[in-house]
Design a protein around this nucleic acid. Structure first.
Lengths: 229, 229
DNA sequence: GTCTATAACGAGATAGAC
DNA sequence: GTCTATCTCGTTATAGAC
């Protein structure tokens, strides 16, 4: 009985993975907007109605792909950071930035799914939020360690931003000064601006040697947040 | 004779504009990947083959929409800058940034067409480059004026970036120090990172009062380039 | 010459009967 | 699960109106 259920559960896991793999392949070929349960089924030798036993709708499949991609990106960033965890905050920061960039370059279509044009008619459920915040939390953690060590020199803020910065800090990192949190959020967005331009081809004919260019930009992002060393 | 040609040319211009208007409407509704000549024709009460008199292919229509969007964005930025052209470089910079952001917020689908996920199967022809560079050229011009006035303090660069910075400067702004050009290109990408996160909903639940937040971020971008006052 | 309409192609998606 | 009839699409050939 338990072996039968175990085999069944194993088969279900395998088929679910196969469906997602094929869907990712189609994502690369046609884009997220044209992701079609039917085509996925055909490629797997299944019939479209059979897929609904694994994913109740196209949107649920999309959500699964998005969560997987966020987790893949988050894991890549966290693994890279772990290996330099004992270094200074600046080195940890640039390591995370470069890991995010490397993941984006090797997974351009999944990157587009996360940070590109939203899929028309699809709105991400709350389920995705946790996976989506892993990179941000990692950057916050680095700033937090710097703050504990007294090496975080948060930049000044204009008065009209203070209420919003305080609110963001309360939500994201109550132990950090509001100025640092506001700077962190801005740096977070700017990091993905650099990466997006590279992945989506905006640097074509403009920036040639993109690795050192990115490294330097990531370094200056860290300085903008107030990290040193 | 000339009046007949004038009338024909006028009709052609009007129909071309109507096609693009309808295509933009569909862009907003379905996304660029699903832009369909047939649907555009149907909405206009034409037959699909008639559209080929105006656009030789779906990709050419896409290209026209892209060039129009780049020009609309460029014109918005240039118009805003013209009105503060006599102010200091910092004020001109933030004015341009805010004009770009305002255009993106009012034209989210066209923004997605320009800076979002590339349309699968479409590659932009060289024709788009000139229109695409208008905002960048505007930012360069501001830095150039600051440099002429001696108020541009270009940030230092690591040695490994110097060849690339020199190459970029030769291409983009031979009269500017390479360090400033590298910083400009980075700031350009980061600007669209901030705007993209806002347009694509990444700031949802994170940043609430986005105008002062953006203004401050744009200001610090300018400082990163070395602009003062 | 300039345009529009009809019809068709090959490909793919979709809905429903079985 | 399978099969079929009916949609969509981009694109082209052709014929006729202005």
């Amino acid at each position: 009985m338990s072996t039968a259920q175990g085999a069944r559960a194993r088969a279900r896991t395998e088929i679910t993975a196969a469906i997602k793999d094929e869907a990712r392949r189609q994502l690369a070929a046609e884009g997220a907007a044209k992701l079609s349960l039917r085509a996925v089924a055909r490629a797997l030798g299944m019939v479209s109605s059979a897929l609904y036993r694994y994913f109740p709708s196209r949107d649920e499949l999309l959500t699964a792909l998005i969560v997987d991609a966020y987790d893949s990106l988050g894991a890549a960033a966290e693994t890279a950071e772990k290996q330099v965890h004992d270094a200074g905050p600046l080195h940890r920061w640039t390591t995370v930035c470069e890991a995010v960039r490397a993941w984006a370059m090797t997974h351009p279509h999944e990157y587009a799914l996360l940070y590109g044009t939203p899929v028309p008619g699809y709105t991400a459920p709350q389920t995705t939020v946790q996976a989506a915040s892993r990179v941000g939390l990692l950057l916050i953690a680095i700033a937090r360690d710097a703050h504990r060590d007294g090496t975080l020199s948060a930049p000044a803020l204009p008065a009209d931003l203070h209420p919003e910065a305080t609110r963001m800090a309360a939500d994201l990192a109550p132990d950090l000064p509001p100025e640092a949190v506001a700077a962190l959020v801005a740096a977070w967005a700017q990091l993905f601006g650099l990466i997006g331009f590279e992945v989506f081809g905006q640097f074509h004919g403009v920036v040639e040697h993109r690795e050192p260019f990115f490294r330097q930009a990531a370094l200056r992002l860290a300085q903008g947040v107030g990290l040193a060393c």
